[in-house]
Design a protein around this nucleic acid. Structure first.
Lengths: 93, 93
DNA sequence: CTCTATGCTACAAATTTTGTATCATGAATG
DNA sequence: CATTCATGATACAAAATTTGTAGCATAGAG
């Protein structure tokens, strides 16, 4: 599953997530949002652009394929949120 | 998004994937399936067990929470498959 | 010219991963 | 009992990746 390999790299999912819902971010804004050093961000952006997930048109944004990916990520995000909520509830106890 | 951080580590998504559909694998079988060296697998398993995603009961398997995660991963897997198919189609051209 | 923001590169230090060998335990076999 | 086998796990050095910080080069605004 090649996509898992790509998306499993540090920051990859996070970058896609930060570009959700049509957001267009500059390199530096994306750097701040995804909390990545510039070297890692650049490496990851190269890979994501090669995979036609991210496009660089007047800032970084998701390509049409990337937009589809975001759709596929929603259930994962919902699970992730529930997971975080559970942990918090457990900690509060 | 803490879950993204955990699942973004090398092999994490892959491990969960290999334990899909109630599969129960030994450490070594999981090592072979996920293509990970033992040190990495062990590190990842510790994290996934701490996050209550994987359980070690007569072999490694998904916990109930992990089973929910797999559900949330299906759209991503479908996207991933479509992505791979597209790449293949493009290469064939 | 100066100031600012941009994308991006450089580089050494820190961290993570890899690959291989190996240990220790327990169950099965002879 | 002695041997063999599979298990989960650790050790360790080499390789790869990531990090944090500094800075470069370009372009636009004032």
């Amino acid at each position: 599953m090649a996509a898992l390999d790509l998306l499993g790299r540090r920051g990859a999912l996070r970058i896609v997530w930060e570009l959700r819902e049509g957001r267009v971010l500059t390199f530096r804004a994306l750097q701040a949002a995804a909390e990545l050093p510039p070297g890692t961000l650049n490496t990851r952006l190269s890979e994501l652009r090669a995979a036609d997930i991210v496009a660089a048109e007047g800032g970084y944004r998701l390509s049409p394929r990337g937009a589809q990916l975001i759709q596929a990520l929603w259930p994962l995000m919902a699970w992730s949120q529930a997971w975080a909520d559970d942990l918090q509830a457990k900690d509060a106890r």
